[in-house]
Design a binder for these strands. Structure first.
Lengths: 165, 165
DNA sequence: CCAATAAAGTTCAATCTTGAACAATAAAGT
DNA sequence: ACTTTATTGTTCAAGATTGAACTTTATTGG
């Protein structure tokens, strides 16, 4: 019985024999598909999922800084520096310097941005509702709670590895 | 009571009031974090999640064609045409022409590729087990079943929109 | 007050991904 | 047999993302 455990690289005990592994693969696959379909449906508004993520965050947290936004979205600051000016040129958002701290740029939705955000959220919500409608509400809630726990755990790993490096 | 429902673009009834929407956002966020952490841990092997996806599929389905692989991974054929030659140069995989059909290239792992795949799978499995260890097995299984159903539903949408276009 | 350090944002080069146009081969229809 | 249509894989240009180096502004410590 020690034999198998002593050989981590052994072909026995393949990952797909682990129930949690299989479960997670299903989660990842569903996410990827959802993303793909969402990308297609958002095309009518000429925006992509990353833009929607930004818009939704500005919708909820008006006046957030680029840094804070990048952290929330788990992307690099440079990403924001490349993407936000484009969205500004398209008239979706506005960037104004902070009065107190001249380093930070605070972000706001324009009226047009707010309209696009609401249309896009309607598309996303409809897709999600349509896709999850057959799943019992209890099951959805239980899933959400599990995911919240995973997020906490993963964030610990994330920050750990970041400061170790 | 009719007032609110008659205004779909109204600011009331925000997406995050819908329990299924909130649930899915949590799923998406957990996935993204998992991906980020996995990317960091795979760096020691000098491969990235897309490479691992390819390796795992070759591990399971030896002799698969580029087309089939692209379909499984939900990426474009051009992606495979760009990525696979790199992996071939790194000695992880091998591409051999099909005898019957001169159009198709069939994919195989090299010995080195098999070693790397096993190391990478060990990393991924360990990360998943570590992250999901506190979730009851029943809950994991229920989640997996939900996800399988979502995948079926989304795939229907996916194919629909593809052939409509 | 001044030097050192930290933080916010930008720039740039490298890498990934995608979709459209293309070449080669196979399958179908006549 | 032969023209048309499909399929497989490649190429190319455009767009997205990242990490490192850099600039400007704040903060900290002497």
């Amino acid at each position: 019985m020690n034999k198998n455990q002593a050989l981590p690289s052994d072909a026995r005990s393949l990952p797909w024999d682990h129930p949690r592994f299989r479960s997670w693969i299903a989660v990842a696959r569903a996410c990827q598909l959802m993303q793909t379909v969402l990308t297609r449906e958002l095309a009518t508004l000429d925006i992509k999922p990353p833009h929607l993520d930004i818009l939704i965050n500005l919708f909820r947290f008006e006046g957030i800084s680029q840094q804070e936004l990048a952290r929330k979205l788990l992307v690099g600051r440079s990403n924001m520096s490349m993407t936000l000016p484009q969205m500004e040129k398209r008239g979706l958002i506005e960037r104004r310097g902070d009065k107190k701290d001249k380093r930070v740029l605070r972000l706001y939705l324009t009226e047009e941005g707010r309209r696009v955000t609401q249309s896009a959220m309607a598309i996303q919500t409809s897709l999600i509702e349509r896709t999850l409608s057959e799943e019992p509400l209890e099951q959805c809630m239980a899933m959400a709670e599990s995911m919240e726990r995973l997020i906490v755990r993963l964030h610990a790993d994330f920050d750990d590895e970041a400061e170790t490096a």
